[in-house]
C-alpha cells in the first residue's frame, strides 16, 4: 500500500486529504500514476484534468512526471506552489 496525499485545490477536488492505495504494476512513472488516477472517478478526473498543472512528490521530494516512482511509502499530488 502506498499513502497518497493531496494539497490545496487538488485535495478539495478529490474530496479527501489522504488515502492508502494499492498501485497497479502498470504505474511506473508519475505520468502513469496520473493517467491511472483519472480512471478512479469523476472527482479524480476533475482534480487531475490538466497534467502540467499537477506537481508530484515521492517520499517528500519533487519528481518530474517522466521519472520512475519506484515503490515509495508516500506520494503527494498538488498544484504549483505559491508560498513565500
Amino acid at each position: 500500500m502506498t499513502k497518497l496525499v493531496y494539497f490545496a485545490w487538488v485535495r478539495e477536488r478529490i474530496g479527501v486529504g489522504e488515502e492508502q492505495i494499492d498501485l497497479p504494476e502498470t504505474v511506473k512513472t508519475g505520468a502513469d500514476l496520473l493517467s491511472w488516477m483519472k480512471t478512479r472517478g469523476e472527482n479524480y478526473e476533475a482534480a487531475l484534468a490538466v497534467d502540467n498543472a499537477i506537481r508530484i512528490a515521492v517520499d517528500q521530494e519533487h519528481v518530474d512526471h517522466d521519472e520512475p516512482i519506484g515503490s515509495p511509502r508516500e506520494i503527494a499530488l498538488f498544484p504549483p506552489m505559491t508560498g513565500g
Binding site: 494539497f7 490545496a8 506552489m81 505559491t82 508560498g83 513565500g84
Partner: peptide, 14 residues
C-alpha cells in the same frame, strides 16, 4: 532562497 522558496517549497495560499 526566496526565489526557490516561491517555486519549490510546498505551501499554497488561499
Amino acid at each position: 532562497l526566496m526565489d526557490f522558496l516561491k517555486t519549490r517549497a510546498p505551501f499554497w495560499k488561499k
